[in-house]
């Protein structure tokens, strides 16, 4: 089973740091990369798959620098980029066949693997359709299928659920959970619930830096005493919204509002401590 180690890696674009001093070890399991847009998630993932070279630091796979491993490393990879490109005139089948060849899937196994992966994403009956005729969600599913084509040990999925409808998202989450049992799955998303449901480990990124990491209970535990709930009038709720980071406002009976907010100290006298969730953790760190 591979181990992927990030050693102080960093990357800048025209002098602006996109990822800074990132250090982490990935082993078997599902890793959720969480961060706002521009946090450096995509840059980090592209460095992990070798599309980008880090400006400094190195990435090791089983103690070997991936930049020296070449095709041997890429043989272990499955990658779904954030912007998944395709050839509009290709049928799904032709596109998958092309990628099977690029991924060095033996020709005698290719058809079987194509059918298997398309079946997993529910596109087995559409494989003769041209890609230009597919919906955004279907294209995303083709993207997921191609990432699985070579049965990768390291699966990197950048915003995999973008464009999927709720039913497809649930289906996707279930089979990613299955995949994570025997490989490294790194998925990035800004949809907190996706990460919350399936990730064994969570990495929170802000401005190119890792600001929090650990399992869901671990990262939530660190937020104990920082999440509060109180019942307020509409007027008072508006005031609190300006003063604190409010994670939720829910209208209650008699014109009152239940406010859930993040604060290092008790915000108002009658506020009660609440159980933190991943959304609270995310908001807390993003608002720092």
């Amino acid at each position: 089973m591979p181990e992927l180690r990030l050693e102080h890696i960093g990357k800048s674009y025209r002098g602006l740091p996109a990822v800074t001093e990132m250090e982490y070890v990935f082993q078997r399991g599902i890793y959720g990369l969480l961060g706002a847009n521009g946090a450096g998630k995509t840059t980090l993932l592209r460095m992990i798959v070798g599309v980008l070279q880090p400006d400094f630091g190195r990435i090791l796979c089983n103690q070997q620098d991936i930049s020296h491993m070449g095709g041997e490393y890429r043989r272990m990879l499955g990658y779904l980029p954030q912007e998944f490109g395709y050839y509009p005139n290709f049928t799904i089948h032709r596109y998958m066949k092309y990628l099977a060849e690029l991924k060095a899937v033996p020709p005698e196994l290719a058809e079987e693997r194509i059918d298997e992966t398309l079946n997993k994403v529910g596109l087995e009956h559409q494989k003769r359709q041209r890609m230009k005729n597919l919906s955004g969600g279907m294209i995303r599913r083709v993207g997921i299928a191609q990432a699985l084509l070579n049965d990768p040990d390291i699966l990197v999925l950048d915003e995999p659920t973008a464009g999927l409808d709720p039913r497809e998202r649930i289906r996707f989450r279930n089979f990613v959970s299955e995949l994570g049992r025997e490989r490294i799955v790194i998925l990035s998303s800004h949809i907190v619930s996706d990460i919350e449901y399936i990730a064994d480990e969570i990495l929170l990124m802000r401005a190119g830096k890792q600001v929090e990491s650990g399992s869901l209970p671990q990262v939530c535990r660190k937020m104990q005493g920082k999440v509060w709930e109180c019942l307020e009038s509409m007027e008072s709720a508006r005031r609190l919204n300006q003063q604190f980071v409010v994670s939720n406002m829910k209208n209650m009976e008699e014109g009152n509002v239940c406010v859930r907010l993040l604060s290092d100290r008790k915000p108002v006298e009658h506020a009660v401590m609440a159980e933190p969730g991943l959304e609270d953790v995310f908001l807390y760190h993003m608002m720092q």
Binding site: G70, R74, P81, G85, Y86
Partner: peptide, 21 residues
């Protein structure tokens, strides 16, 4: 076209993407 269609990211992450292809 690989750049403009953004297929390059997938291709470069494959076994033959940076060599044989």
């Amino acid at each position: 076209e690989e750049y403009s269609r953004k297929t390059v990211n997938v291709l470069l992450a494959t076994v033959h993407g940076k060599g044989k292809d």
